[in-house]
Computed example of a mutant assay.
Amino acid sequence: MKILDVLEKEAILVNLKSRDKIGILNELVAPAARITGIDHNDMVRVLMERERLGSTGIGGGIGIPHGKLKNLEKLVLGFGLSRQGVDFESMDGRPTYLFFLLITPEHSTDLHLKLLARVSRLLKKEPLKEMMMKATSADEIIAIIGEDDDDF
């Protein structure tokens, strides 16, 4: 599976406005809730429960908030860009700019882990991160990811 197989254009937000973690999660979840028909607040609650275990701000300006929902039929993947950066309680203590939101059905652990690993590998590539930081549209993000979106 490729990232672009599951990343829906309407779930790509290139101008996140929020300045804190809960605001960012609310922004990222809005299109995911519309796409899936799942309650917005349920999605945010699951993500915040995961954040309490440890921040999904992995450092290097990257956050990968993720969680599992039992009433979700298929996974949802979203992307967000915060141009000013947000305190996402990242491991390196620095602001977070690039976000991938991943919410999967409760019993899809293998797929959940594979997609987390794929996104993490993709974001380790500095030139790709730099291009994403400059993107101004969902189409640009799709093109950037598509250049390096190999099957896993």
Rank of each mutant, 00 (worst) to 15 (best):
A33K: 02
G37C: 05
A32M: 09
A30P: 08
L25E: 11
K21G: 04
I35V: 09
T36V: 06
D20F: 08
N41E: 14
A32D: 04
N41M: 08
L25R: 02
K21S: 00
N26A: 13
I38A: 13
I24F: 06
D42T: 12
V29W: 02
E27Q: 14
A30D: 14
G37W: 09
V14H: 09
D20M: 00
L28R: 10
N41L: 13
K17Y: 02
T36Y: 13
L13S: 12
V14T: 15
V14C: 15
I24R: 01
D20R: 09
R34H: 04
S18F: 05
K21T: 09
D39T: 00
L16T: 02
L16G: 05
I38Y: 03
D42Q: 13
R34L: 11
T36P: 04
V44K: 10
N15F: 00
A33L: 04
A32H: 02
A33D: 07
L28A: 05
N26L: 08
A32W: 05
K17L: 12
R19L: 11
E27M: 11
I22H: 13
I38G: 02
V44E: 00
I35Q: 10
N15H: 13
H40G: 01
N41C: 02
G23D: 12
V29H: 07
D20P: 05
D39K: 09
N26Y: 00
M43W: 05
N41K: 14
V29E: 08
R19N: 14
I35H: 01
I38L: 12
A32C: 12
I35W: 03
D39R: 03
A30V: 11
K17S: 14
A32E: 04
A32I: 07
A33M: 10
I38T: 08
L25F: 06
V44N: 03
V14L: 08
L13E: 11
G37E: 04
V44L: 10
P31A: 07
E27F: 02
S18V: 03
P31H: 04
D20Q: 11
L28T: 13
V44P: 01
N26G: 14
V14S: 04
S18W: 06
V29C: 04
N41Q: 15
G23L: 09
A33H: 00
D20H: 15
R34W: 00
L16D: 00
I22M: 11
V44R: 05
I22Q: 14
P31C: 12
A33G: 03
K21Y: 06
D39L: 12
D39M: 01
L28D: 07
D42R: 09
G37Y: 03
E27N: 12
T36Q: 10
M43Y: 02
S18I: 00
I38F: 08
G37T: 01
I24N: 03
N15G: 13
T36C: 10
H40Y: 07
M43V: 15
R34G: 03
A32S: 14
M43H: 06
D20V: 03
R19T: 15
L16V: 03
R19M: 07
G23K: 11
E27H: 07
A33F: 04
V29K: 06
I24G: 13
H40T: 05
V29L: 01
I22D: 15
N41V: 04
G37P: 05
N26V: 01
V14D: 04
I38K: 11
M43C: 01
D42H: 06
L25C: 02
N41P: 01
D20G: 07
L25Y: 01
I22Y: 12
T36L: 06
V14M: 07
V29Q: 05
R34K: 15
